[in-house]
Protein backbone atom coordinates (compact mmCIF):
# COMPACT_ATOMS: atom_id res chain seq x y z
CA UNK A 1 0.00 0.00 0.00
CA UNK A 2 1.38 3.37 -1.00
CA UNK A 3 -0.79 6.52 -0.84
CA UNK A 4 2.01 8.86 -1.81
CA UNK A 5 1.62 10.82 -5.03
CA UNK A 6 4.34 12.70 -6.89
CA UNK A 7 2.95 16.23 -7.00
CA UNK A 8 0.00 18.51 -6.25
CA UNK A 9 -1.56 17.97 -9.68
CA UNK A 10 -1.63 14.20 -9.17
CA UNK A 11 -2.98 14.68 -5.65
CA UNK A 12 -5.91 16.73 -6.95
CA UNK A 13 -6.89 14.44 -9.84
CA UNK A 14 -10.63 13.81 -9.84
CA UNK A 15 -11.66 17.07 -8.15
CA UNK A 16 -14.37 18.13 -10.58
CA UNK A 17 -17.02 20.78 -11.23
CA UNK A 18 -19.89 20.94 -8.74
CA UNK A 19 -18.21 18.92 -6.00
CA UNK A 20 -18.42 19.54 -2.27
CA UNK A 21 -14.98 20.15 -0.80
CA UNK A 22 -14.12 20.18 2.90
CA UNK A 23 -11.09 22.35 3.61
CA UNK A 24 -9.22 21.81 6.87
CA UNK A 25 -8.13 24.72 9.02
CA UNK A 26 -9.43 27.38 11.36
CA UNK A 27 -8.54 30.75 9.93
CA UNK A 28 -4.96 30.33 8.71
CA UNK A 29 -4.08 27.57 11.18
CA UNK A 30 -4.19 24.32 9.21
CA UNK A 31 -5.22 25.84 5.86
CA UNK A 32 -3.80 23.63 3.05
CA UNK A 33 -2.58 26.58 1.00
CA UNK A 34 -0.57 24.66 -1.62
CA UNK A 35 -3.47 22.30 -2.41
CA UNK A 36 -5.88 25.26 -2.70
CA UNK A 37 -3.52 27.26 -4.90
CA UNK A 38 -2.90 24.28 -7.17
CA UNK A 39 -6.69 23.95 -7.62
CA UNK A 40 -6.90 27.64 -8.50
CA UNK A 41 -4.08 27.25 -11.04
CA UNK A 42 -5.93 24.34 -12.65
CA UNK A 43 -9.17 26.36 -12.74
CA UNK A 44 -7.39 29.28 -14.41
CA UNK A 45 -5.81 26.99 -16.99
CA UNK A 46 -8.81 24.76 -17.76
CA UNK A 47 -11.97 26.39 -16.28
CA UNK A 48 -12.40 23.47 -13.89
CA UNK A 49 -13.18 22.73 -11.09
CA UNK A 50 -15.89 25.37 -10.72
CA UNK A 51 -19.29 25.64 -8.96
CA UNK A 52 -17.74 24.18 -5.81
CA UNK A 53 -19.39 23.99 -2.39
CA UNK A 54 -16.73 24.67 0.24
CA UNK A 55 -17.01 23.50 3.85
CA UNK A 56 -14.70 25.29 6.29
CA UNK A 57 -15.04 27.15 9.58
CA UNK A 58 -14.48 30.46 7.80
CA UNK A 59 -14.88 31.99 4.35
CA UNK A 60 -11.37 33.14 3.52
CA UNK A 61 -9.10 35.99 4.49
CA UNK A 62 -7.15 38.40 2.27
CA UNK A 63 -6.32 37.31 -1.26
CA UNK A 64 -4.97 33.78 -0.72
CA UNK A 65 -6.40 30.31 -0.04
CA UNK A 66 -10.21 30.14 0.11
CA UNK A 67 -10.49 33.91 -0.50
CA UNK A 68 -8.48 33.50 -3.71
CA UNK A 69 -10.78 30.62 -4.78
CA UNK A 70 -13.77 32.92 -4.27
CA UNK A 71 -12.02 35.73 -6.18
CA UNK A 72 -11.31 33.29 -9.02
CA UNK A 73 -15.05 32.51 -9.28
CA UNK A 74 -14.76 28.80 -8.41
CA UNK A 75 -17.07 28.80 -5.39
CA UNK A 76 -20.87 28.60 -5.61
CA UNK A 77 -21.66 28.08 -1.92
CA UNK A 78 -19.98 28.01 1.49
CA UNK A 79 -21.01 26.08 4.59
CA UNK A 80 -19.28 27.65 7.60
CA UNK A 81 -19.72 29.11 11.09
CA UNK A 82 -17.89 32.42 10.81
CA UNK A 83 -17.58 34.11 7.39
CA UNK A 84 -15.79 37.14 8.82
CA UNK A 85 -12.07 37.75 9.08
CA UNK A 86 -9.48 40.51 9.22
CA UNK A 87 -9.88 41.00 5.46
CA UNK A 88 -13.15 39.35 4.35
CA UNK A 89 -13.53 41.29 1.07
CA UNK A 90 -13.61 38.27 -1.24
CA UNK A 91 -16.59 36.59 0.44
CA UNK A 92 -18.37 39.76 1.55
CA UNK A 93 -18.48 41.36 -1.89
CA UNK A 94 -19.86 38.24 -3.59
CA UNK A 95 -22.28 37.52 -0.75
CA UNK A 96 -23.77 41.01 -0.74
CA UNK A 97 -24.03 40.84 -4.56
CA UNK A 98 -25.95 37.56 -4.25
CA UNK A 99 -23.23 35.68 -6.16
CA UNK A 100 -22.36 33.13 -3.46
CA UNK A 101 -24.54 31.02 -1.18
CA UNK A 102 -24.06 30.74 2.58
CA UNK A 103 -25.22 28.07 5.00
CA UNK A 104 -24.38 29.38 8.47
CA UNK A 105 -23.89 26.62 11.07
CA UNK A 106 -22.98 26.95 14.77
CA UNK A 107 -19.35 25.93 15.08
CA UNK A 108 -19.87 22.91 17.33
CA UNK A 109 -22.77 21.73 15.17
CA UNK A 110 -20.55 22.05 12.09
CA UNK A 111 -17.86 19.92 13.74
CA UNK A 112 -20.34 17.31 14.94
CA UNK A 113 -22.15 17.13 11.58
CA UNK A 114 -18.82 16.40 9.91
CA UNK A 115 -17.87 13.88 12.59
CA UNK A 116 -21.29 12.21 12.19
CA UNK A 117 -20.80 12.11 8.42
CA UNK A 118 -17.54 10.27 8.89
CA UNK A 119 -18.93 7.99 11.59
CA UNK A 120 -22.07 6.78 9.75
CA UNK A 121 -24.51 8.62 12.05
CA UNK A 122 -27.15 10.28 9.82
CA UNK A 123 -28.50 12.71 12.44
CA UNK A 124 -28.16 13.73 16.07
CA UNK A 125 -29.73 16.09 18.61
CA UNK A 126 -27.90 19.12 19.99
CA UNK A 127 -28.90 22.01 22.24
CA UNK A 128 -27.04 24.52 20.06
CA UNK A 129 -29.32 26.90 18.21
CA UNK A 130 -32.49 25.97 20.08
CA UNK A 131 -34.98 28.84 19.92
CA UNK A 132 -32.85 30.81 17.44
CA UNK A 133 -33.10 31.68 13.76
CA UNK A 134 -30.54 28.98 12.90
CA UNK A 135 -32.86 26.22 14.13
CA UNK A 136 -35.99 27.47 12.39
CA UNK A 137 -37.88 24.64 10.70
CA UNK A 138 -35.73 21.92 12.28
CA UNK A 139 -37.41 19.16 14.31
CA UNK A 140 -36.88 19.22 18.09
CA UNK A 141 -37.35 16.60 20.78
CA UNK A 142 -37.23 16.51 24.57
CA UNK A 143 -34.76 14.38 26.51
CA UNK A 144 -34.61 14.49 30.31
CA UNK A 145 -36.70 17.69 30.50
CA UNK A 146 -34.71 19.64 27.93
CA UNK A 147 -35.32 20.34 24.25
CA UNK A 148 -32.80 19.66 21.50
CA UNK A 149 -32.54 20.36 17.76
CA UNK A 150 -32.18 17.61 15.17
CA UNK A 151 -29.15 18.11 12.92
CA UNK A 152 -28.00 16.01 9.97
CA UNK A 153 -24.64 14.60 9.06
CA UNK A 154 -22.41 16.41 6.59
CA UNK A 155 -20.32 14.53 4.02
CA UNK A 156 -18.29 15.72 1.07
CA UNK A 157 -16.82 14.51 -2.19
CA UNK A 158 -13.34 15.70 -1.26
CA UNK A 159 -11.38 16.78 1.83
CA UNK A 160 -8.21 18.85 1.52
CA UNK A 161 -6.03 18.53 4.62
CA UNK A 162 -2.71 19.94 5.86
CA UNK A 163 -0.73 17.57 8.06
CA UNK A 164 2.68 17.79 9.70
CA UNK A 165 3.92 14.20 9.31
CA UNK A 166 2.52 11.42 7.17
CA UNK A 167 3.63 7.95 6.12
CA UNK A 168 2.80 6.04 2.93
CA UNK A 169 -0.11 4.36 4.76
CA UNK A 170 -1.73 7.76 5.37
CA UNK A 171 -1.18 7.98 9.13
CA UNK A 172 -1.10 11.67 10.10
CA UNK A 173 0.02 14.05 12.80
CA UNK A 174 -0.76 17.76 12.87
CA UNK A 175 1.11 20.83 14.05
CA UNK A 176 -0.10 22.54 17.24
CA UNK A 177 -3.61 24.04 16.88
CA UNK A 178 -3.61 23.35 13.11
CA UNK A 179 -5.42 20.09 13.87
CA UNK A 180 -8.90 21.64 14.44
CA UNK A 181 -11.40 20.30 11.82
CA UNK A 182 -8.94 18.20 9.81
CA UNK A 183 -9.28 14.81 11.59
CA UNK A 184 -13.09 15.09 11.25
CA UNK A 185 -13.00 16.09 7.58
CA UNK A 186 -10.56 13.29 6.76
CA UNK A 187 -13.28 10.85 7.91
CA UNK A 188 -16.20 12.53 6.16
CA UNK A 189 -15.05 12.79 2.53
CA UNK A 190 -15.14 10.19 -0.23
CA UNK A 191 -11.65 11.30 -1.31
CA UNK A 192 -9.26 12.63 1.34
CA UNK A 193 -6.20 14.41 -0.03
CA UNK A 194 -3.39 15.40 2.33
CA UNK A 195 -0.43 17.72 1.97
CA UNK A 196 2.19 16.82 4.58
CA UNK A 197 5.25 18.81 5.57
CA UNK A 198 7.21 15.57 5.65
CA UNK A 199 6.59 11.99 4.64
CA UNK A 200 8.33 9.46 6.85
CA UNK A 201 8.74 5.69 6.74
CA UNK A 202 6.00 3.56 8.36
CA UNK A 203 6.92 3.15 12.01
CA UNK A 204 8.54 6.56 12.21
CA UNK A 205 5.30 7.99 13.60
CA UNK A 206 4.77 6.48 17.05
CA UNK A 207 1.42 4.62 16.89
CA UNK A 208 0.55 6.35 20.18
CA UNK A 209 0.96 9.72 18.44
CA UNK A 210 -1.06 9.05 15.27
CA UNK A 211 -3.99 11.50 15.23
CA UNK A 212 -5.63 10.48 11.94
CA UNK A 213 -5.20 6.75 11.20
CA UNK A 214 -4.38 6.04 7.57
CA UNK A 215 -7.71 4.31 6.88
CA UNK A 216 -9.27 7.79 6.52
CA UNK A 217 -6.69 9.02 3.99
CA UNK A 218 -6.52 8.37 0.23
CA UNK A 219 -3.58 10.41 -1.06
CA UNK A 220 -0.54 12.08 0.48
CA UNK A 221 1.70 14.62 -1.22
CA UNK A 222 4.81 16.04 0.42
CA UNK A 223 4.94 19.86 0.64
CA UNK A 224 8.06 20.79 2.62
CA UNK A 225 8.11 24.21 4.25
CA UNK A 226 4.41 24.95 3.54
CA UNK A 227 3.06 28.48 3.38
CA UNK A 228 0.95 29.77 6.25
CA UNK A 229 -2.21 31.69 5.34
CA UNK A 230 -1.97 34.28 8.11
CA UNK A 231 1.68 35.00 7.27
CA UNK A 232 0.80 35.39 3.56
CA UNK A 233 -2.12 37.65 4.43
CA UNK A 234 0.05 39.87 6.62
CA UNK A 235 2.65 40.07 3.86
CA UNK A 236 -0.07 41.30 1.47
CA UNK A 237 0.31 38.34 -0.90
CA UNK A 238 -2.34 37.71 -3.58
CA UNK A 239 -2.64 34.42 -5.42
Amino acid sequence: MDKRVADLEAALEGVEDGMSVMVGGFGGSGAPIELLHALIDRFRATGSPGRLTLINNNAGNGRVGIAAMIDAGMVERIICSFPRSADPRAFTERYLAGEIGLELVPQGTLAERIRAGGAGIPAFYTPAGLGTALAEGKPTARFEEKSYVLERWLKADVALIKAESADRLGNLTYRRAARNFSPLMAMAAALTIVQATRIVAPGQIDPEAVVTPGIFVDRVVEVPDPQQEEALMRAGVSH
Binding site: S81, L104, V105, A128, G129
Partner: peptide, 19 residues
Protein backbone atom coordinates in the same frame (compact mmCIF):
# COMPACT_ATOMS: atom_id res chain seq x y z
CA UNK B 1 -24.28 37.23 17.27
CA UNK B 2 -26.34 39.40 14.94
CA UNK B 3 -27.32 43.06 14.97
CA UNK B 4 -30.16 42.07 12.64
CA UNK B 5 -29.18 44.79 10.18
CA UNK B 6 -28.12 42.69 7.20
CA UNK B 7 -24.51 42.37 6.16
CA UNK B 8 -22.72 39.07 6.59
CA UNK B 9 -24.06 36.96 9.48
CA UNK B 10 -21.50 35.03 11.57
CA UNK B 11 -22.17 32.87 14.62
CA UNK B 12 -18.96 30.96 15.48
CA UNK B 13 -19.20 28.91 18.67
CA UNK B 14 -21.53 31.19 20.66
CA UNK B 15 -24.65 29.06 20.22
CA UNK B 16 -22.82 25.97 21.49
CA UNK B 17 -21.12 27.78 24.39
CA UNK B 18 -24.36 29.11 25.86
CA UNK B 19 -25.61 25.56 26.37
Amino acid sequence: WSTGRGGVPAVGGAMDLVH
